[in-house]
Design a protein around this nucleic acid. Structure first.
Lengths: 137, 137
DNA sequence: TTATTTCACTTGCAAAAAGCAAGTGGCTGG
DNA sequence: CCAGCCACTTGCTTTTTGCAAGTGAAATAA
């Protein structure tokens, strides 16, 4: 796994720390797919609405693996496929993702987040966290 | 203020919604400076550790204003200066920022977040939110 | 067993964005 | 009125993105 040191980062600010891994238009969409849409294969990430290019996807998956956020492994069901999964570090991003969700639900009138989900998130965030995490295995 | 519609965005996913505004290596650092470091002037943003280029800073400030996250106004104390401030929408990013802080504090051994701050964040997040917000005026 | 298709990538090239250094023009303090 | 500060803009180089096509290993179909 990649180390965080003075050669490869701009500062030791915690906001900057996440930007070094997630500061682009695509990486967080992969996390979303892994976390909420149960996607695990390269081809599934390619099919998301935002249309990520295949070379960008490959480079982002490699970076996430380098940073210890996801793992890449052989798929026992099909040797031509690879399985991508969140590590504990990756799963730890869930509270951030949920706050992002809440902010967008509030400020984007076109958001496709179901009202029911936003409501449950407001009422009992911990329950939503537990539920999403339990679906990840 | 800019509208969110099908011509200028890739999808109506809430994660994607924030990426349209904050999906780059610099924008969130400006929010950090406004929110936690009480910076309000162009020259102050330029002086942060990460060394943002002046043309990039100008374009990001304009984008944030276009998206209704900050305001730009004359500084009554000095007509050569401009004042940048968070709007209510911008202040609403605070829970996201705090979760980012918590994640980095946990996963970055070099983080410069004081332990004291992380501890208080864990113990009483709402109090930290109230405190940061009250310092914003 | 061979042929075709699926899958996870890589490669090459054009377009866009970032990075850097220098310049501009209003305002201020002396 | 002039030197310096302040918030930018401009021009150019380098890096990153975006798009289309290609590759090779493994599955599936004939």
């Amino acid at each position: 796994m990649m180390k965080h040191n003075s050669e490869n980062c701009r500062s030791n600010c915690p906001i900057n720390f996440v930007l070094e891994t997630f500061g682009d238009k695509w990486t967080l969409l992969i996390i979303r797919d892994l976390m909420f849409k149960r996607k695990k294969h390269y081809g599934e990430f390619l099919q998301s609405d935002e249309n990520i290019a295949t070379n960008i996807l490959a480079s982002r998956l490699r970076r996430l693996e380098d940073h210890g956020v996801i793992t890449r492994s052989a798929d026992p069901a099909n040797a031509a496929k690879r399985l991508y999964n969140l590590t504990a570090k990756g799963k730890g991003l869930l509270p951030i993702m949920l706050e992002i969700n809440a902010w967008s639900a509030k400020h984007d009138t076109l958001t496709n987040t179901p009202e029911e989900f936003s409501r449950r998130l407001k009422v009992d965030k911990e329950a939503v966290i537990a539920e999403v995490l339990s679906a990840l295995d």
